[in-house]
């Protein structure tokens, strides 16, 4: 598929170095570590990256258009698929509207990861190769935080809005369904948002752990390729893998080892209730698993990151 897709404009490797740490630390000379400092630094990251994106406004809009194009094509493909079938998989409940909730959720999660996580994971790899990570290590703030958030590619957020629109539209259609209407409460919407957050944390952990390996490998050019293959697996309802030896193996691998199948499946199931009425037992057990996995992955990625840092040899300095 679109493998050589987005070669984002290469951003200069020493960005973190030039990034002014906000005056929070400057005023009284105290290198604060309270949560407030993190919030202020984060706000600076947001401001700087917005300024950077908006500096090339025409390019920004073209980038928005191109990512939206890709998403629309995706939608057209499934529109065509649903003109021939009325569900994906036998008795799975993933009918057109249920699946569109799923698809929209995929867009939301992918857009958020591509806006906030991917550019930084990529840049982290680059910092290690050039030795510029030194400057991040010297800053009086948590290094993982500092390398995780400085860059945001705002044009990727265009798909977030499309995702919200699609989910909204599909949910309304489901609620208007006369034979088996969907009823949503605040709890369900809250859980949906919560599990999207869990999914984001899982993906973030996977990508940061992957990027950390560049400390050992010297360079990790395949990061975007790896991301592309991951998205390929998580953007499908997990039921399609649940048949045959190969399918179950894949399912098991991407549920328990690299748990990316939970990322979209759990929130989408909670909101769309494919097996209405009510949420079935499987959804609940998957949700429980996701909660556990999220904490585990976050801890694991933190551990990999710090273990990798101890091997950092500071190239070229």
């Amino acid at each position: 598929m679109a493998d050589d897709v987005r070669t984002k404009p290469q951003q200069s490797a020493n960005r973190i170095v030039n990034e002014p740490i906000p005056d929070a630390t400057a005023g009284d000379g105290i290198t604060g570590t309270g949560p407030l400092v993190y919030w202020r630094v984060f706000r600076t990251f947001v401001r700087n990256s917005l300024v950077r994106s908006m500096g090339f406004r025409a390019n920004f809009w073209l980038e928005c258009v191109s990512s939206v194009c890709w998403t629309i094509m995706n939608l057209v493909f499934f529109k065509i698929v649903f003109s021939y079938t009325d569900s994906i998989g036998r008795n799975t409940g993933w009918g057109e509207n249920e699946f569109f909730v799923f698809l929209g959720t995929t867009w939301i999660i992918t857009a958020l990861i591509q806006t906030f996580v991917m550019p930084n994971a990529q840049e982290f790899s680059e910092l290690i190769r050039t030795g510029h990570l030194d400057f991040a290590l010297l800053k009086p703030i948590d290094t993982q935080f500092l390398i995780s958030f400085p860059q945001m590619v705002w044009s990727n957020l265009a798909n977030l809005f499309l995702g919200i629109l699609l989910v909204g539209y599909a949910v309304l259609r489901l609620m208007a369904d006369e034979s088996n209407p969907l009823t949503l409460g605040f709890t369900q919407v809250g859980l949906y948002l919560f599990f999207i957050l869990c999914g984001l944390v899982i993906l973030y952990s996977v990508m940061i752990a992957m990027a950390s390996t560049s400390i050992w490998l010297g360079r990790n050019q395949t990061l975007y390729t790896f991301w592309f293959y991951l998205t390929n697996f998580y953007r499908q309802p997990m039921e399609i893998y649940q048949q045959g030896m190969w399918g179950w193996t894949l399912w098991g691998f991407f549920t328990f080892v690299i748990p990316i199948l939970l990322v979209v499946n759990v929130p989408a199931r909670i909101l769309a209730e494919p097996l209405r009425p009510g949420l079935d037992e499987r959804t609940w057990s998957l949700a429980g698993l996701t909660l556990l996995v999220t904490l585990l992955m976050l801890g694991l990625s933190r551990w990999v990151f710090q273990a990798a840092l101890t091997s950092y040899r500071s190239a070229s300095s």
Partner: peptide
């Protein structure tokens, strides 16, 4: 060789689509 990896998902997806059609 890696480029064929996404084919796996394609195979499972189409199988699920055809299977659902057969179940009608």
């Amino acid at each position: 060789l890696m480029r064929f990896l996404p084919m796996l998902t394609q195979i499972f997806l189409w199988w699920a689509i055809f299977d659902a059609m057969a179940a009608r």
